[in-house]
Design a protein around this nucleic acid. Structure first.
Lengths: 337, 337
DNA sequence: TGCTACTATGGAACTAGTTCCACAACCGCG
DNA sequence: CGCGGTTGTGGAACTAGTTCCATAGTAGCA
């Protein structure tokens, strides 16, 4: 078996507490004693048990992150921001990937309850009121990313403004028949995604502000994914009066829109403008016009907020908004005359 | 403070062991006692401390994964396979992202030593002999993914055969001036990636088998990335006798090749064929011809091997090879006549 | 009825750290 | 020289589970 702190104490001829003090760099050890203890540690190849340490301290230096579909490029980029910031503080990251509603519920119920993490980050999921109550009962600090709920700290962007920004760009180019492709509106009780919904709201606001009617046949919603967006786009292009521009609620969905246009040999942007949301890595390769949101930073900043919550002294930082901006590339242009 | 197992025992008027037995579904508890204990657990809202449990059992039900650049689509897909399989067994996943050599060394040194994980998965990194020795000294079970080293268990594909497969496809289409774009060859002491090197070996073998000379001006190596591959491709296309086909060591690099072709208005595949490796998600969107390797499965299978190692009874499963296959899409065609 | 065997139960010991209290040694100062 | 304060040290108690041994109770059987 591995050596313990007691073995070190015995061999070095000192007390338990002294070894512990050496390990924790307490100044209350004489140089001679410290040296002796260190050499015994070396001799016995002693390495302190992290698990016993965690148990004794009641802290784990670990943060849990619950992420839906962590293969989505936007989620991965947020996780990278999280990991980088945690690692720089010597914290570990436990990832829970959520791809079904059952697992969403399981994670939100179990993760805060077991004390294996000092804090919790939740990406793109909105906890229900009873879940929020359970967080505070278990006194588990929580920070939301890309979501907002019941007074919890969070980092997000103004998706409504983002939707307006995208739609206004299309309007300013001269488009009047502008369609929207996004996630389903009607599952507030399952995953509780909200960003697609908010972007849709912004889209509608921009149209209304421009004095255009809201035409429901231009609104298509389906599960998130390239393939689904492609199907929806074919529906739109089959309309008697097809749109000249499409706002997709995410870059992934915008890729599906581009695929549908390609299926029909419709040139982009000459005959169809396409704008996405997120500015994921491949958006640049595709030349996709999009609304950029700071994904890496959202993860990094959320960790900072969580550390504030962990250091107790500091009051719960409120929900923060990060800046978004329009990135114009080559998939948007004025409509064909 | 939260209730402990002792509180439950006291309130229920039973012994410590009995509560523990109820929690662990031991059959050695009478139905009446079990019922009483369960109701007290409910009453006190008792939830066992995982951290104390881990400490007592000496196991954490956690697996650590060290992944270089975990934002790379191929790595993410492997991680997804890992997470899915771990979650189905109730295990947790701690992710360590490696983006510098210093962090690589730190992770390989520290992660096995601290006993916060029951096992370790290492993606695309080849541990050095002394690191392998440290694993066995710390008796930390390790499974490699996309790598192979010193008798460690692992899951990989035959990258040499993959390189041959890709190159042979180009040869069969009639190409004779075939270039290679990949990672640097000469950093065996830094990250110790090997797959790009092996694919390059396969490429050379296929050329030799076809009786073609190995022309070093057609071999370009640089750091992994779209942008770097784009720069290398411009170098290739500037040659007096530019290649008619390019084999990129990964799909990400193939994207850079495509960008360079687009920069120069060179039509793909009419004037330049491009083949990648991995078959990441967007390869389909891009219509990229590529060599598919089972990424998700590599993660899932590695977890299975790790579980075998953990169950002690089973001998170390040897390094396994997964199947690869050629996916022909629209970036390869016979050369222009 | 008495012996055996098995079930159900209680609780001490154990896991490997940290923390804190008690105490000794030593120093400086009045 | 004595006293208060500081420094260095030892080790019991604590964290919250699991495990295992001892033992009481009881059923089965000769």
């Amino acid at each position: 078996m591995a050596a313990t702190i007691r073995d070190v104490a015995r061999v070095a001829g000192v007390g338990l507490g002294t070894v512990s003090r050496v390990l924790n760099n307490s100044p209350l050890v004489s140089a001679a004693t410290r040296q002796r203890v260190l050499s015994v540690i070396e001799e016995l190849r002693y390495s302190p048990s992290q698990i016993a340490r965690n148990f004794s301290l009641g802290r784990t230096r670990t943060i849990a992150a619950i992420a839906p579909f962590f293969t989505r490029p936007s989620v991965v980029e947020r996780l990278r921001g999280i990991e980088a910031t945690l690692a720089s503080e010597g914290y570990h990251l436990v990832v829970f990937n959520v791809e079904t509603v059952a697992r969403r519920d399981e994670c939100l119920r179990e993760v805060p309850r077991n004390d294996r993490a000092d804090g919790l980050l939740i990406i793109s999921l909105v906890p229900r009121p009873e879940e929020i109550r359970a967080f505070s009962e278990a006194s588990m600090p929580v920070v939301l990313i890309d979501a907002c709920a019941g007074g919890l700290s969070g980092v997000s962007v103004d998706d409504v403004a983002g939707g307006e920004l995208a739609t206004t760009h299309l309007l300013e180019l001269g488009h009047r028949r502008i369609a929207f492709v996004g996630d389903p509106l009607e599952d507030p009780l399952t995953f509780n995604f909200t960003s697609s919904y908010d972007r849709f709201t912004g889209y509608q606001r921009a149209l209304t502000a421009a004095g255009l009617p809201i035409q429901t046949e231009y609104h298509r919603h389906s599960l998130h994914g390239r393939y689904e967006a492609r199907v929806l786009t074919h529906e739109l292009l089959n309309l008697p009066d097809p749109p000249t521009a499409i706002f997709a609620a995410s870059d992934t969905q915008a890729m599906g829109v581009l695929e549908a246009a390609r299926d029909r040999d419709i040139p982009v942007p000459a005959a169809l403008s396409v704008i996405g949301f997120d500015d994921i890595d491949i958006a640049e390769h595709l030349g996709l016009t999009t609304v950029r949101q700071p994904l890496f930073e959202s993860g990094a900043r959320a960790v900072e907020l969580l550390f504030m919550l962990l250091s107790e002294g500091i009051a719960a930082p409120p929900a923060e908004r990060l800046a978004i901006d329009l990135v114009i590339r080559t998939t948007t242009a004025p409509p064909a005359t």
